[in-house]
Structures are given as C-alpha cells and as structure tokens.
C-alpha cells in the first residue's frame, strides 16, 4: 500500500504539469487557427474573440493561390534528401570521432561549425555556388543544408556513440564482420533514438528555412513552402488570414511525420539501447 501512495503524487504532479504546458501551448496555437478562419475585417476588429463565421475556404485559397502543392513537393525533396545525407554521413563520421581520441581535433573542427553564424559564410558561399553552377539546383541547396547541419548531427551522434558499450562491436569484429558492415548492422540500429532526434531537429530547421532557399533557389518551379507562404506577406499590407492558413497547412505533414516517428522512437528505444 505504501508503494502505491508513494507513486500517486508524482503521477498527479505529472498530469498537472503536462496539462498546464498543454494549455500554454494551445492558447497561442488557437489564435493562429482562429486568425486563419476569420475574415480580414473581423480579424482586425476582434482578433481574440471566437470567430463569428468560419471561413474554411481561406485554406483552399491559401493552398491554390500560393501553389502550396508545388511548395510541399520542393520542400519535401530538399528536406528528405538532406536528412538522409545527414543521418548517413553524420552517423558514420561520428563513429571514429567517438571511438578514437586522436580524431578529437577533427571533432572540434566540426563542432566549431555549430557556432558560426550562417551570414559569415554567405558571400564566399554564393561565389562558390556560382562557380560550381549549383545555383537554382536542388543539389546545391541539399549540399548546403547538409554542410550547415552536419556539425550538430555529428555532435549528437558522437555523444550517443560514446555511451554505447564497445563489447558488442568487438564481438562482431571477432566474428569476422568488416568494419563497415559491423557499424551499419550492429551500431547504427542502436542509434535509433538519436536518429529520431536528429530527424526531428533538422526537420524543424530545414522545413522552415527561408533565407538559404531565397538566396540559392529563387527559381519559380523550385520554390519551397516558406517562399510560397511569403507571397501573402506584404510590406504594408499582409494577408494575415492567408499567411496563417498557409502556415497551418505547411506544418500538417510534419506533425504526421512526428506521430509516425513517435511510434518508432519508443520501439527503437525498447529494442535498442536497453540490450546494450
């Protein structure tokens, strides 16, 4: 009985904390949704009141006027390709960096990359991209996304690989598996939790990038979601309802991805790290 009571208070506290934070998250999000469904004159007159009329057609208008379909496709191409590169290059580079102390200087070299403001790279990078004919190509932006995000990815993987027991790897090597096979078959699956984290974190920055695509991918057919949404933002007169509707539409696919990852995430942890 005493055990039960001991467990009860933390649970109530958990519930309260989670619900409280949920409310804090939901209130601003509710403004976003209500701002999207209100007519512009109502939004100006009563920005915070419950909508008198629900203009769901704003979503349709946002979708078609900004060509969000095209935006989604382009954002998907850039984000997914960069993510795949980031996961594979990042995990594999992190392995020796975590395991061998003489690679530490290289680790710090990567790490320094996290700390650089992107603007510092902008000008020479633009010249380089022009030289390589990579402006207005998907490849160009994928390379930049990968290069800019790699430091953080390597930092995350290195940290987690350090925490994994070496015995498994050594056993596999004794079994005669090559080092690459050993890494991808034994170590990489153990990294699933951190891989999910890497994916989630980078989705957030890449899906929302505005500046890099504006600079390097201004071509109309290649326009991403964020550039498409910007077509509703004006210098003096923004179509706020359309902006908010477009933003909501743009994050829906990502929420779906998170829900899917969430399942794998839990499984990955149950089946991965604990074994080690």
């Amino acid at each position: 009985m005493s055990l039960k009571r001991q467990e009860m208070w933390p649970r109530i506290a958990s519930l309260v904390i989670v619900l409280l934070w949920a409310v804090i998250i939901i209130v601003p999000l509710a403004i976003m949704v209500s701002g999207a469904v209100k007519a512009p004159d109502e939004l100006a007159a009563h920005p915070f009141a419950w909508p008198q009329e629900f203009h769901w057609e704003t979503f349709v208008k946002a979708w078609t006027d900004a060509n969000l379909m095209r935006g989604m496709r382009n954002s998907f191409i850039l984000t997914s390709a960069s993510l795949v590169l980031l996961v594979f290059l990042g995990a594999s580079a992190a392995y020796p960096l975590a395991r061998r102390s003489n690679w530490t200087p290289l680790f710090y070299f990567f790490l320094a990359g996290i700390m650089v403001p992107f603007q510092l790279a902008m000008l020479p990078l633009y010249r380089l991209m022009k030289l390589l004919h990579l402006i207005n190509t998907y490849y160009g932006v994928i390379f930049i996304y990968t290069a800019v995000s790699l430091p953080m990815v390597i930092f995350l993987y290195t940290g987690f690989i350090k925490g994994i027991n070496r015995e498994l790897e050594e056993a596999a090597l004794v079994d005669g598996a090559g080092k690459f096979r050993m890494f991808w078959q034994i170590v990489f699956p153990l990294l699933k939790p951190v891989t999910s984290t890497v994916i989630i974190m980078n989705i957030m920055s890449l899906w929302n990038d505005f500046f890099i695509v504006l600079l390097f991918l201004p071509k109309k057919e290649m326009r991403t979601l964020q550039l498409s949404i910007f077509s509703f933002v004006g210098q003096y007169n923004s179509k706020l309802n359309l902006v908010l509707a477009a933003v909501i539409l743009s994050i829906l696919p990502m929420i779906t991805v998170f829900l899917l990852l969430q399942k794998h995430f839990i499984k990955g942890i149950a089946g991965g790290a604990v074994k080690g």
Binding site: L89, G90, V116, L125, L128, T146, L150
Partner: peptide
Amino acid sequence: TDTMFVLPAALIFALFFAYPVISSFYL
C-alpha cells in the same frame, strides 16, 4: 578505414561551410 567513415562528411562540410567561413574572415 576510419578516414573512410569520416571523409564524405568532412568533404561536404569543408567545401560548403568551413571554406566559405574561413575565407570571409579576411573581410
């Protein structure tokens, strides 16, 4: 082998980020 693990990441990082950053230090 270790180099092979690191090389692809190092190349992309060096070319598309580290080099531009370092070369702008001059400015």
